[in-house]
């Protein structure tokens, strides 16, 4: 049985290695695809110039414009897609684990509606205090305000009952949605911008957006991963988890806050991209099992891979017109998920 167990751990390492390789290939492949036709060889060469040591060996055979398209337009967008997908994958996994609820997603605590309100207020009032970064910043502030509100509504004498948290999240979401609906109703010509933001997308993102989101997503995801085993144990229930030495209330707070952090960061740069955070964790639970030590990293990797491909489709399928990536994620993700549900007879949660 020891060999069996060691096999399992080896298996985990293998999964993570494979997924990392696939993610790397995805980044490179997605960079070669786009409206402007640039040959894959050239793309590869351009990318290699950014790697240390070998960059001096490559002789430039491309135009400055081509390099700009690859390095300043496609690559940051792809890297951002990876970050956002990973963030949603991790956040969804953590929320479903913490709430022991398969319907939970990263937006469950009101983050999406808070971020949306922040963004929409910016659009409606035409705020430009921080230039093009005003919308992401305001979205982040809105998300933070929403989670702060929900957290305080739900906490009772220093404890955080998850069912109350869930209901508080729903209540705040509904309330903010009403304000959003009102703003949209009266938005006039600005409605298109609002709808496009709400559906989520990665168009026009640059390295600054990446740098804005990266530290939050990175820090929050690592924090959640540190508590991977605790997330396993809390699936047994809060009291049994405490009996196994988990500081349950502390854990809940850490998971809620770090999940909120990475989700808010993701939403502020990409809008509300649905489906990834709900379904990627389920798919990965079917494929790698319920242990968060492998489930969290693999959900992050597959979330990243999935969103890069979805965004690649979104920007190429009817180029030069962009489709909001949220439409693509649901359109292609849902049937695949249904297929998995039907082929695996056993309950997954």
């Amino acid at each position: 049985m020891y060999t069996h167990y060691l096999k399992k751990i080896f298996h985990w390492k293998l999964i993570i290695t494979y997924l990392t390789v696939i993610l790397g290939l995805t980044v490179v492949l997605a960079t070669t695809l786009g409206a402007a036709h640039i040959s894959p060889v050239v793309v590869l060469k351009i990318l290699l110039t950014k790697l240390p040591l070998i960059n001096n060996l490559i002789i430039p055979t491309w135009s400055v414009g081509e390099a700009t398209i690859i390095l300043q337009i496609r690559l940051p967008r792809i890297i951002l897609g990876m970050l956002v997908g990973a963030a949603l994958g991790v956040a969804g996994t953590a929320m479903q684990g913490l709430f022991k609820n398969p319907m939970a997603d990263p937006y469950i605590t009101g983050i999406s509606s808070g971020a949306a309100l922040g963004a929409i207020l910016t659009i409606v009032f035409g705020l430009t205090i921080f230039g093009m970064y005003t919308i992401p910043l305001m979205a982040f502030v809105g998300a933070a305000a929403a989670i702060f509100l929900v957290y305080n509504i739900a906490s009772v004498r220093g404890k955080l009952p998850v069912s109350t948290l869930l209901l508080a999240g729903i209540a705040v979401t509904l309330f903010l949605s009403a304000i959003i609906s009102f703003l949209m109703y009266t938005a006039g010509e600005k409605l298109h911008g609002i709808v496009f933001w709400l559906m989520g997308g990665l168009w026009g993102r640059n390295w600054n957006h990446v740098m804005m989101a990266f530290p939050f997503i990175c820090f929050g995801s690592i924090l959640i991963y540190i508590f991977a085993r605790d997330l396993n144990v809390i699936l047994l229930g809060e009291e049994p988890a405490q009996h196994l030495g988990i500081e349950v209330e502390t854990l809940k707070k850490i998971i809620i806050l770090s999940t909120s952090l990475i989700t808010a960061a993701a939403v502020s740069v990409s809008g509300i991209i649905g489906f990834v955070g709900l379904v990627i964790p389920h798919i990965m639970r079917i494929l790698v099992g319920p242990d968060h030590r492998v489930l969290l990293p693999s959900s992050a990797l597959v979330g990243g891979i999935f969103l890069i491909w979805a965004d690649t489709l979104a920007r190429t399928i009817i180029a030069p017109t962009e489709i909001p990536v949220g439409i693509i994620t649901a359109l292609f993700g849902a049937p695949f998920f249904i297929y998995l549900l039907r082929t695996r007879k056993r309950s997954i949660f």
């Binding site: 022991k100 229930g237 049994p240 242990d291 056993r346």
Partner: peptide
């Protein structure tokens, strides 16, 4: 105990080692 997820029995028992 309400346990409704797909950990194996051995994995659940091993959680006893957590502390």
């Amino acid at each position: 105990s309400v346990i409704s997820f797909a950990f194996t029995a051995l994995e659940v028992v091993l959680m006893g080692r957590t502390p």
